[in-house]
């Protein structure tokens, strides 16, 4: 309990560091939000700068930004000036989150199943096949795997829609594409974890009690085998949510990934801050939950 509180206290600190670094780094980068546009009349540019407080000293801007950010207000986007950053996030975050959550669930389900079966049938043809596929899964980039899936399931078999967002079926292919490399890593981690636990003394004890192999694996080995998987879960969630850009592009999903990357390219200072804070908090919290879930699995780390 104490650890949980302590960890929770770190969250705002980490996010503040992240926000500070992002704020100054994006301003250090060459160019500004209005430099890409056609030469603006001097007064217009001045007016814009004044509107976004860009004419004030950096520290003043920083202070003002922090004050607003705490209230959840990031101001209007510098590029799409008719919309606020909040509106953009509110519109594009849900598709990304739904896609990411589906991909994680798929990755865990596939990974744990394949890994466990591979471990139980270690060094058999099935194991070699499963592990071979995982190598493929890790090395095949989304822009290859995604179009392949589209070709097969949408174009040829016509089972699923090619792309788009709105209908539940439209999520299947992108979620599968996004989950593949993570399912592969989870499978490998699960296999290694399971093999290690199965060689422990306490597994021999469990067998000596006359328990069935199913109970030995599910009750006595599963939890311990899951620990490497869980330790990768935090980074995996982070990578899946921030790495969805390519998949969002391929399947034409209006996710936040695209806004995130474009905001940085456009030097859209306000949108960069907004998306960074959203992603940052999410990743920090996911990592914390992943660490804490150790304690759920392993009583020895409960303090």
């Amino acid at each position: 309990m104490l650890t949980l509180l302590k960890r929770l206290l770190y969250v705002p600190v980490v996010i503040l560091l992240l926000v500070t670094a992002t704020f100054f780094l994006i301003r250090l980068a060459p160019g500004g939000p209005f430099s890409a546009e056609r030469d603006l009349p001097e007064e217009v540019e001045k007016a814009l700068n004044a509107k976004f407080r860009l004419d004030q000293p950096m520290l003043v801007q920083y202070g003002a930004m922090l004050k607003d950010a705490v209230r959840g207000d990031f101001g209007p986007s510098m590029k799409h000036r008719e919309r606020t950053v909040r509106q953009i996030i509110a519109q594009h975050l849900p598709p990304s989150m739904i896609l990411g959550a589906l991909a994680i669930i798929l990755a865990l389900w596939i990974g744990i199943t394949v890994g466990t079966v591979s471990a139980l049938k270690a060094n058999s043809a099935l194991d070699y096949f499963g592990m071979g596929v995982t190598v493929l899964g890790i090395s095949l980039p989304a822009f290859v795997f995604g179009p392949l899936l589209q070709l097969l399931f949408a174009m040829r078999l016509d089972w699923l829609p090619v792309a788009g967002y709105g209908a539940p079926l439209q999520l299947v292919l992108p979620a599968l594409t996004l989950s593949l490399p993570f399912a592969a890593r989870f499978a490998r981690l699960m296999r290694a974890g399971m093999l290690e636990v199965l060689s422990e003394d306490f597994i021999r004890t469990a067998r000596s009690k006359g328990l069935s192999e199913r109970i030995v694996v599910l009750r006595h080995a599963f939890r311990g085998a899951l620990i490497p998987v869980v330790s990768f879960l935090g980074p995996a969630i982070a990578a899946i949510t921030t790495g969805s850009l390519v998949v969002e592009k391929i399947f034409n999903i209006p996710g936040l990934g695209r806004e995130f990357v474009e905001s940085a390219l456009n030097r859209d200072y306000t949108l960069v801050m907004g998306t960074t804070i959203v992603y940052g908090s999410f990743i920090v919290i996911c990592n914390m939950l992943s660490d804490l879930s150790y304690a759920l699995l392993d009583p020895r780390v409960r303090r």
Binding site: F202, T205, G210, L211, G224, L297
Partner: peptide, 25 residues
């Protein structure tokens, strides 16, 4: 059949009691 023998007719205890019990249960 052997599973029925183990634990019912023959039981076994092992050398290292700390590693022979399941730390997760």
């Amino acid at each position: 059949e052997m599973r029925e023998v183990r634990g019912q007719e023959i039981s076994m205890i092992f050398q290292d009691p700390m590693t022979s019990l399941n730390p997760y249960l």
